[in-house]
Simulated scan of single mutants.
Amino acid sequence: MILVHLASSWPDVLAHSRTAAEVTLSAWAQISDDRLRQYGDAVLGVYQKEVVTAFDITGWSRTREGRVVFEGNPSRRWAHLIGTPNPGKPWVRGQARPVQYLDTAILASGAVPVEDAASGRRAVVDDFILTVDAEGSATLVVPSGRRVTVITTPVS
Rank of each mutant, 00 (worst) to 15 (best):
M1I: 13
M1N: 03
I2K: 05
I2H: 06
V4K: 01
V4E: 04
H5G: 09
L6N: 04
S8P: 00
S8V: 10
S9W: 07
S9V: 15
S9Y: 06
W10S: 05
W10I: 14
L14D: 02
A15W: 08
A15E: 13
S17L: 10
R18K: 12
R18S: 13
T19Q: 06
A21E: 10
A21Q: 07
T24I: 15
A27V: 08
A27S: 14
W28G: 08
A29T: 07
Q30L: 14
I31A: 07
D33Q: 10
R35A: 15
R37C: 04
D41Q: 10
D41G: 15
V43H: 08
V43C: 09
V43A: 10
L44A: 02
L44K: 02
G45V: 03
V46E: 01
Y47R: 00
Y47L: 02
E50A: 03
V51F: 01
V52S: 00
T53M: 02
F55R: 05
F55P: 07
D56W: 08
D56N: 14
D56V: 04
I57E: 00
G59K: 02
W60M: 02
S61V: 05
T63P: 06
R64L: 15
E65L: 12
G66T: 03
R67C: 09
F70C: 14
E71T: 13
G72P: 13
N73W: 08
N73F: 05
P74G: 07
S75P: 06
R77F: 01
W78D: 07
W78T: 07
A79N: 00
A79M: 02
L81S: 11
L81D: 09
L81Y: 06
I82L: 02
G83E: 14
T84E: 03
T84M: 03
P85T: 03
P85Y: 03
P87R: 01
G88P: 05
G88M: 00
G88Y: 01
K89A: 01
P90W: 00
W91Q: 00
R93P: 01
G94Q: 05
G94T: 00
G94I: 02
P98G: 15
Q100S: 08
Y101V: 11
D103C: 03
D103F: 05
D103K: 06
T104L: 12
A105L: 13
I106H: 03
I106D: 05
I106K: 03
L107V: 08
L107I: 13
A108M: 08
G110E: 09
G110W: 09
P113R: 09
V114F: 06
A117G: 07
R121K: 13
V124Q: 11
V125Y: 07
D126N: 12
D126L: 14
D126R: 12
D127K: 14
I129G: 04
I129P: 04
L130Q: 05
L130K: 06
V132D: 11
A134W: 05
T139C: 08
T139M: 11
V141E: 10
V141M: 06
V141N: 04
V142F: 02
V142P: 00
V142G: 01
V142N: 00
S144Y: 06
G145D: 08
G145N: 07
R146C: 06
V148M: 09
I151P: 02
T152F: 06
T153V: 15
P154V: 15
V155F: 09
S156V: 15
